[in-house]
């Protein structure tokens, strides 16, 4: 019955769930249903969505990267620190580009280890996560930078939509939503319309078949991890900008929210499946839930638990539908059992 609505990765169902949750929360707590909340959820989604795009790409390719948060803060903090130490303010764009270079470099480290030594991606990125953090704190700096370059501060205070209302709280849509939307469209285009994107799907589907089809599998895997590094670095700079401080202890530890969003969005942890639309919906869903729990006064510890449950539900649904799809092969695997 729902088949028509499902979409290739259950996006339809997810959208429905999102709507139901929003309606339910709004009924329980009318304050929630407002432009203010909507804009603040969008603002809250800026950083997780960029992260999620990177994680989506790497999950489709059949791997996982848990070092993205470490890469993000490493790249962003280092870029900001260079500007501060050098006493110059190159502006958001140049800082982002600088950070992106660091992100690419760290991504290359991940990619080189994974693609050349054929090691499990979770273990490798878990290792590099520690490595990147360690190097950042030991060699770059451990000090909290409370006053990043003025140009970032300017951006932090810029909204593209500001509705100031006498009785209510104002509603502000942050300007950084714009580059995020552009990035999202770019990634969607890359995955769907470029051979590089299709190669990522192919490798996630069957890497040996991809090799036999003539894809340069090692090179593509390296590029995937570099890309994740770059996206993470951009997210890191945006995070620093929005928070108006650069803290080397930041971000790491919140990877779960992002991975949960991507998996809820229909990306298969076995690789080869996933969509940008699903990921966007997944990020929004997690943000809505975190936000409403916050409004309801639920402590953060319980928010983490809620996200954990969501992740398990998401993976569970995937496992179930995978089982249904391969019912027949499952059946034969059980032969005589």
């Amino acid at each position: 019955m729902l088949a028509g609505l499902r979409g290739s990765n259950n996006e339809g169902v997810l959208a429905l769930v999102l709507v139901v949750i929003v309606v339910a929360i709004s009924i329980l707590n009318p304050v929630f249903f407002s432009l203010t909340t909507m804009f603040s959820i969008m603002r809250g989604s800026i950083v997780p969505l960029i992260f999620a795009l990177g994680v989506l790409i790497v999950i489709i390719s059949g791997g996982i990267d848990v070092s993205f948060a470490a890469i993000a803060i490493f790249s962003a903090y280092t870029a900001v620190k260079i500007a501060q130490d050098g006493n110059f303010d190159p502006g958001l764009i140049v800082i982002t580009l600088m950070a992106a270079c660091f992100g690419a470099l760290l991504g290359l480290v991940n990619g080189a280890v994974i693609a050349n030594f054929r090691l499990p991606t979770l273990i490798v990125t878990l290792g590099t996560q520690g490595l990147f953090r360690g190097v950042l704190i030991a060699y770059v700096g451990s000090k909290y930078i409370a006053n990043p370059p003025m140009s970032l501060d300017e951006v932090a205070k810029t909204n593209i939509i500001s509705i100031v209302n006498e009785q209510e709280r104002g509603a502000f849509l942050h300007v950084l939503v714009v580059p995020v939307i552009i990035l999202t469209i770019l990634v969607a285009w890359m995955l769907k319309r470029t051979m590089f994107g299709r190669a990522i799907f192919a490798i996630g589907g069957d890497d040996e078949a991809a090799r036999r089809a003539g894809f340069p599998v090692v090179r593509i895997q390296m590029m995937v991890y570099i890309l994740v590094g770059v996206l993470a670095a951009v997210a890191g700079v945006f995070h620093v900008t929005l928070g108006r401080n650069a803290n080397p202890q930041d971000l790491v530890g919140n990877e779960l929210d992002v991975i949960a969003a991507v998996v809820l969005g229909g990306a298969s942890v076995f690789g080869g499946r996933g969509s940008v639309l699903g990921t966007v919906l997944g990020v929004l869903l997690i943000q809505v839930i975190n936000n409403s729990l916050l409004l309801a006064g639920v402590p953060t510890a319980w928010q983490r638990a809620a996200v954990g449950v969501l992740l398990i539900v998401g993976v569970g649904i995937q496992a179930l539908s995978a089982k249904r799809k391969t019912k027949r092969s499952f059946v034969t695997a059980q032969l005589g059992a």
Partner: peptide
């Protein structure tokens, strides 16, 4: 050596 997650058309042309 096909790609299970891709469509028939894409498998044929890739």
């Amino acid at each position: 050596s096909l790609f299970p997650n891709l469509s028939v058309a894409e498998n044929i042309t890739i």
